[in-house]
């Protein structure tokens, strides 16, 4: 993940006109890299890349293969599939974090990227939320309700939990969407050692 500067977006697209359109749309907000095929994409991919926009239909190396390679190399980035074909359930199983129907409009593309950047924060913010709730739970186990009601520290903790939960829920987005839901779970499992 890029530490400083704008987020890095890698566009993998074999049609030069399409790739150029995306680049023009995105360059004011992101550091955009373009790869015309899967093999080039793999050389462009490093720890700085935050989001990959991956065309599903490419000659030589298909989008699925690039995705598999990204996951095998354990690169911490989120991958959106761009496809003219209406996505079926395979998308979720294959491990794409989102999909965009081709041709996308500008808002759709940037909206997807922003959602995926939010999701990159999800695990850390859920961890923070968990720590606060765990502290609250320890206090509840040690102290009486009357003691808690009088404690300013406890009241401040309750407020922080509320704010952190709001932040997490905003990052979660709409959980009725399958890709968003499975993507969020995948995000927390990446940190669970060996699972």
């Amino acid at each position: 993940m890029s530490e400083n500067g704008p987020p890095v977006v890698l566009v993998v697209e074999d049609e030069p006109d399409v790739a150029e359109t995306y680049r023009r749309w995105l360059r004011s907000s992101y550091d955009v890299r373009v790869a015309p095929d899967g093999a080039t994409a793999m050389t462009e991919l490093d720890g700085d890349v935050d989001v990959v926009l991956l065309d599903r239909m490419m000659p030589e190396m298909a989008g699925e293969e690039v995705l598999r390679e990204i996951r095998d190399r354990e690169i911490d980035c989120r991958v959106a599939m761009v496809s003219a074909v209406d996505p079926d359930f395979d998308i979720v199983e294959m491990g794409f974090d989102a999909y965009v129907t081709k041709p996308p409009d500008r808002d759709e593309l940037t909206g997807t990227i922003e959602r995926l950047l939010d999701r990159a924060e999800l695990n850390d913010d859920l961890q923070e939320y968990y720590s606060l709730v765990a502290r609250q739970s320890a206090l509840q186990a040690e102290k009486t309700e009357a003691e808690l009601a009088e404690s300013d520290e406890y009241a401040a903790l309750v407020d922080r939990i509320e704010r952190e939960r709001e932040r997490v829920d905003e990052e979660l987005g709409d959980m009725s969407t399958d890709t968003e839901f499975v993507g969020a779970v995948r995000e927390i499992m990446d940190d669970e050692g060996g699972e």
């Binding site: 961890q127 997490v168 709409d174 959980m175 009725s176 927390i188 699972e195």
Partner: peptide
């Protein structure tokens, strides 16, 4: 099977899924 923090995070996501559907 899992760390408590992972189970907690999963429950947060899964209960949100149930709420949103």
């Amino acid at each position: 099977y899992l760390d408590l923090n992972t189970v907690f995070k999963f429950l947060h996501i899964y209960t949100s899924r149930i709420a949103d559907t």
